[in-house]
Write a protein that binds this DNA or RNA. Structure first.
Lengths: 151, 151
DNA sequence: TGTGTTATTGATAATCATTTACACTTGATA
DNA sequence: TATCAAGTGTAAATGATTATCAATAACACA
């Protein structure tokens, strides 16, 4: 945890930004709740527990900054809210998501499913891929089971 | 064009909705500007040219309805606006998008790149895939060329 | 032709996530 | 210490979308 924060601090400095206490508090929440797809509001409330004087706008500004620096991923599941995830270190890509259309849970796939596909896109469309977002919508294991039982 | 509208009309009837003049005007705009990723506002303005009395709320309602019936795809490129595309007939899936990070243009891929990947997801995660969204972010052919020339 | 019922509409206001404006702090540097 | 830019919190503004509601249209039936 502390190491990760130290590295983020350096990364910010490299771009001539500072890791202010407010920014650090936000990063700590993201670190504690990694992979939780928190909205800005969620993060704001969690940050407030530790540092009640912090403002929502600052959280938004921090998330925007971290997003630009590719430290967090800003993701969008189609409900009108952006969600933020700390990017796994060294991860060049978004992970993929399985969104259940019945219960709404979101599962992660960290494995890169798209190596071949990316290669194809680069070759066939001469499009230089920097990043991608892949979301599957469907029925999760759990809901499939439930449906089977209720029939 | 007329055939397509006729089929949409039937599809609406099957779900006990009517193809009102307002809805038809909206569908016609979508047909004329297929694959243009229009926002609700864009569509509203285009509909207004033909039928000035139509209201923005009605356009939203129509798009919502068409979206539920899977006649249009509601897509989201991460700017705070939903965009709407008439789904290609018989297309079971969203098409894929190449979003250029420099000039912002969006290119389509209609070919299904994910058959294998979907199969893997179904097997490995027992997740029953109904739909997916895949967006690549990177540099388009055109901007790659421009960058090369300016160096 | 009327009449009741229901869905649909347009205008408008409300909502809600996100941004912006602005006056105030802070922290580094001269 | 004085200065200056960067960063902050509060509050107001913005902009997309949704909800509300009275008016209208469509239709089924007397």
């Amino acid at each position: 945890m502390e190491h990760r924060i130290e590295r983020i601090k350096k990364q910010l400095h490299a771009e001539s930004y500072k890791l202010t206490p407010q920014r650090e508090a936000t990063v700590r929440v993201l670190l504690e709740r990694e992979e939780d797809h928190l909205s800005a509001e969620d993060i704001y409330l969690l940050v407030k527990e530790k540092a009640p004087e912090i403002g929502l706008a600052t959280v938004y500004r921090t998330l925007e900054l971290l997003s630009e620096l590719k430290i967090v991923d800003k993701i969008n599941f189609g409900d009108g809210v952006s969600r933020y995830d700390l990017r796994k270190e060294g991860a060049a890509h978004f992970h993929h998501h399985l969104v259940c259309m019945e219960c709404g849970t979101v599962e992660e796939i960290v494995e890169d499913l798209l190596e071949d596909v990316e290669k194809k896109v680069e070759d066939q469309w001469q499009f230089q891929v920097k990043d991608h977002r892949l979301t599957f919508h469907g029925i999760c294991r759990h809901c499939q089971q439930k449906n089977k039982e209720s029939n």
